[in-house]
């Protein structure tokens, strides 16, 4: 390894509720039995990983974004700011300039093009980043404030925080948001390996195909974990074979797993078979990632 950064394993899925958080938390806790590891919850709209750990809060900071602030005495009411804002986040209503922070994309256009420097950029809180520690497990999550609409800048800041603080670790696990829209792109675009978790059902297959297309657009190496294997049919397996996507593990369908999950318990600690699957998944990810140690 030339640069000292952890192997980033991102866990994603086209659809919500397929077991993303379950896999992320179990995998991270399993790794932590042997070495220090960081788990980052990038699902900033619905961070749920933290529900599975009761750790000690070691650090907290607000997340910020940059927005323009009207400096009234300097303003000549030329109207340029309103004209150049493609997001309608700056309005000129008579003798007032209104800035709508939630609509602002922090592009700096109005601020830098203002002829009288009447819209300097200032920072505004958008949420909170928290860092917990449970023995070997470091856990980082960001939570968007309610009403805040843009997840992407917060995801990017959270990744940056982890980079700055955990460069010395060997492995980072990222719990990503569901879907195929911008937040997933931001969360997975520099991952060393992406695990797509799905269910062997028609909904699962349909959403998996979308997730695969997304990861191919990003040119990320990936593998599939089939959750609740045994229900539904084999279409997901056949699809993966046809598309040459490795299946890393099949987690069996079991009511016991559903029950453990529902009480917020880690599954592998109770079911040895799952522990073996985690070991197989981890080995594969590390081998397939850059600089991975077999």
């Amino acid at each position: 390894m030339t640069n000292h950064s952890p192997v980033r394993i991102a866990i994603a899925s086209g659809k919500g509720g397929t077991g993303k958080t379950t896999l992320a938390t179990n995998l991270a806790a399993y790794i932590a039995e042997q070495e220090e590891v960081v788990l980052v919850d990038l699902d900033v709209e619905e961070p749920n990983s933290g529900l599975f750990f009761k750790g000690e809060l070691i650090y907290e900071e607000p997340n910020f974004k940059m927005i323009p602030q009207w400096d009234e005495p300097k303003c000549t009411f030329c109207g340029l700011c309103q004209k150049v804002c493609n997001f309608h986040a700056v309005l000129q209503l008579g003798p007032t300039i209104l800035v709508f922070p939630e609509l602002c994309h922090s592009c700096y256009t109005c601020s830098e093009l203002c002829p009288t420097e009447a819209l300097p950029m200032i920072s505004k809180r958008t949420g909170k980043l928290s860092n917990f520690r449970i023995n070997n497990l470091h856990f980082v999550e960001s939570r968007l404030d309610v009403g805040e609409e843009q997840a992407v800048p917060t995801i990017s800041k959270t990744k940056q925080y982890s980079n700055e603080n955990y460069a010395h670790l060997r492995i980072e696990i990222d719990d990503c948001p569901p879907g195929t829209s911008c937040p997933v792109i931001e969360a997975t675009k520099n991952a060393d390996f992406v695990i797509l978790i799905t269910e062997p059902t028609p909904f699962g297959l349909h959403d998996l195909t979308l997730a695969v297309e997304t990861m191919r657009a990003l040119k990320r190496p990936m593998g599939v974990v089939v959750n609740r294997y045994g229900i539904g049919n084999d279409d997901v397996i056949r699809y993966c074979q046809k598309e040459n996507i490795p299946i890393l593990a099949k987690i069996p369908n079991s009511r016991k797993i559903a029950e453990l999950y529902s009480s917020g318990k880690l599954i592998y600690q109770e079911i040895p078979e799952v522990k073996e699957l985690l070991s197989t998944i981890l080995d594969y990810c590390l081998k397939a990632s850059k600089g991975g140690i077999a």
Binding site: Q82, F87, H88, A89, L91, Q92, L93, L98, F100, L103, E149
Partner: peptide, 9 residues
């Protein structure tokens, strides 16, 4: 985004 503020304008 911002359809509401644009129409308000």
């Amino acid at each position: 985004h911002g359809a509401g503020t644009a129409t308000a304008q």
